[in-house]
Simulated scan of single mutants.
Amino acid sequence: MSKESYELKAEARERVGKGSSRELRRNGLIPAVIYGDKQAPISIALSTNEVTKRIHAGGFMTTVATIDVDGKKIKVLPKDYQLDPVRDFTMHVDFLRVSGNTLVNVEIPVHFENEEKSDIKIGGVLNIVRHEVEVHCPADAIPEFFNIDLSGKKIGDSIHISEVTLPKGVTPVIDRDFTIATIIAPAAGIDESAAEGEAEA
C-alpha cells in the first residue's frame, strides 16, 4: 500500500510571478499550485522545511496528502516539483486535486528480493532495465513499491511485468509485456569452479 498520508498547512497567495516567488523563498516558503478536478487552480505558499522533509522521506510523488489552505482541507497528490540546480533546494511544487474516484498515473519503484536464491550468487549480474514502473491506478490505492522475487532465476532469464502481481485496479501504462530486469553473465565470465561448488552445496 501507499505510504501513510500527511497534512501540510498552506496560505493562499494573492500575488504570483517571479518577484513574489523570490520574496516567499526569502521568508522560508515555497510557491505551489493546486489544480485539477475541474476546479480553478489555487496558488499557495508552503513551509520550505516541511516540504523538503517530505521529499527526502521518500514516496513523495506516490503519497496522497491533505493541504490545509486557510482552514479548507484539500486532498492532493504531488505531480511535479522543481529543485534549484545549484543549491538543491525546492523551488516550486504542483499538486493535483484528488478524490476517491480519481485515477492517476504514477511511477512505482521496483524492489528485488532473494538474490541469494538465484544465479546472482555465482556471479550473475542483475541488469535493471526499469527502476520504476508507471501505472494507472486509483489515487487512494497507490502501491508503495513492487516486490520481485528472484528465486530460481538463471543467467539469461528476463523478468517481465506479467510476473509482477499487481493490486486490484492497478494497470501498467505501457500496453505490452515489457522487461523490468535481466540476469546477465559478468563481463569476466563465470568462475566455473565456484559455480560447481555452489551446485554441489
Rank of each mutant, 00 (worst) to 15 (best):
E163D: 10
E132W: 01
N105D: 11
V98N: 03
D70G: 15
P143N: 04
G100V: 09
D68G: 13
G156C: 01
I74M: 07
K73D: 08
I180R: 06
G169I: 04
I142R: 12
V104I: 04
E115I: 11
A139M: 07
V64G: 02
G156W: 04
G169M: 06
V104E: 03
F95K: 03
N147F: 11
F60W: 04
R130I: 00
P172Q: 00
N101C: 06
S158Q: 14
S158W: 00
I108P: 02
D94K: 12
D84I: 10
M91T: 15
H131Y: 11
I108L: 04
D140I: 07
T63I: 04
D149M: 07
A187K: 14
H136R: 12
G59P: 10
I74R: 09
D177S: 06
V110H: 08
H111C: 11
I120A: 14
D157G: 05
I159L: 15
K121Y: 10
I183S: 02
L103M: 15
S118C: 07
D175S: 14
G100M: 12
N114W: 07
G189C: 10
S99K: 12
H131T: 09
L83G: 01
D157C: 02
D80T: 14
I122W: 00
C137I: 07
K72F: 07
P167T: 06
R97Y: 03
R87G: 01
P85K: 07
K168C: 00
H131W: 08
D191P: 00
R130Y: 10
V93T: 09
M61V: 02
H131A: 12
L166A: 01
H136Y: 05
I142L: 12
I190S: 08
F146M: 11
Q82P: 01
A185E: 13
P138H: 06
R97F: 02
I184V: 15
